[in-house]
Design a protein around this nucleic acid. Structure first.
Lengths: 230, 230
DNA sequence: TCAAAAGTGTTTTATATACACCCATGT
DNA sequence: ACATGGGTGTATATAAAACACTTTTGA
């Protein structure tokens, strides 16, 4: 690697695809309305410039907090988008991240200016500025494949959840129906769900048991070669 | 996303982890010896600055060609390393790539200055400058997981190869022994290998059949939901 | 008492694993 | 004729898939 000191550099940004799920609703993505050109008034992913004084990961956390109020969530690097014409003004390379949040307990009003941030169901997305549609598709693909071999789905649910909520989440992300008995059998067999001894509240039918994911146990099992697979 | 025009920007580089395999030898990585500080004289991954006029992908291709002479190979983005103290001189964010090359037919002498590029077996790596060891570990992890569900192993073999060569490649990457009969059964059942009707040359034992991977057929099958899994 | 979702087992089918010998070729 | 790796099949165990009814609860 050879270094030159003052040379023209691409600008560096982060963009975040924030997935939110609320049991009994659809999987959603958080978008913000742009206040400035280009694409003024259009929807785009939250994001912004990486400062020289912060790591790229930190920049993603900061932008997410600043633009949407979302904090303390699962956030993972997705892919870096580095083609030439991504931004109409100048050369911008963007490191994309995806976040998973449970919509029970992450109200949007925490946002700096919540009026400009909004959740959209994946089926009714508006058109997006820049190459953000492509970034979003990339994030959906990652979520869809990763949820099958890592227990990241739980990040989209409240700490205590029912098996039916978990199943509906998987069905939405994988876009196919799953067999209830086989799904429960497989999950319970892993022995990674803690029975909280509590039940769902105020439902107009038999109340379901609430479970919690046993993260500690999962980490232990993983060390011994265990693979979460669904 | 808000934009400021002239603000201090991190430098942006690409780094490439080039894996090479030669049947009957070990999996190797291509390193170059640094001619300039920092880490002068030490080994590091090939890489360099991203120009404003080229995409990040193109920068990776270019640096690989310039520094090692390697061209026309499988090259895929790995991960972006964006922590603060990666480079002792200034803030540098690096987009890492990994490449897969068959050592039969990619002689190193094609390099601009081959004397400074060298293949190392994974078991006898020198210490590396920057955070390149971490990048390398990340690439190994990616290769190890991806080879199980995408047919990228063939990129490390000559176009025509024997089943034993393929098996030894998998065994090295996965770091465990595989059963010969089961391995062959599984692969042949996928019906993605073309029997070239040729045989291995000049070996001191029964000559093995040479196969070629049927990329066209794989692409077709993938569309219909087929999954390469091993 | 009805509606709505929770919860539960067994059979069948497919896939993964374990395992040992003969074959072809060059020296 | 011997050493070296090439090539092959079957039996067993494990996991996936298919499938329908009873239970609980609130309205």
């Amino acid at each position: 690697m050879s270094y030159t000191y003052d040379y023209p550099r691409p600008a560096l940004t982060v963009d975040c695809v924030v997935f939110g799920f609320e049991p009994a609703s659809a999987l959603k993505v958080l978008l913000i309305r742009r206040k400035l050109p280009p694409y003024e008034g259009e929807w785009s992913l939250p994001g912004g410039f990486v400062q020289v004084s912060e790591s790229v990961d930190d920049a993603a956390v900061r932008e997410l907090q600043e633009e949407t109020g979302v904090a303390d969530v699962f956030l993972e690097q997705l892919y870096t988008f580095g083609s030439l014409q991504r931004d109409p003004r100048e050369r911008v390379v963007s490191v994309a991240y995806y976040a998973l949040v449970s919509l029970q307990g992450h109200p949007l009003q925490a946002a700096t200016d919540a009026s400009d941030a909004q959740w959209f169901a994946l089926s009714t997305l508006p058109s997006l500025g820049f190459d953000h549609r492509e970034i979003l598709e990339c994030a959906i693909a990652r979520l869809r494949s990763k949820i099958r071999y890592e227990p990241i789905g739980f990040e989209l649910l409240p700490k205590k959840f029912t098996l039916s909520q978990l199943q509906r989440l998987y069905e939405q992300i994988l876009e196919r129906e799953l067999d209830k008995r086989n799904f429960r059998k497989k999950l319970l067999k892993m022995d990674l769900l803690i029975d909280t001894e509590e039940k769902e509240q105020s439902v107009a039918h038999r109340a379901a048991k609430l479970y919690a994911f046993d993260t500690t146990k999962y980490i232990e099992l993983k060390k011994t070669g265990f693979n979460f697979e669904l």
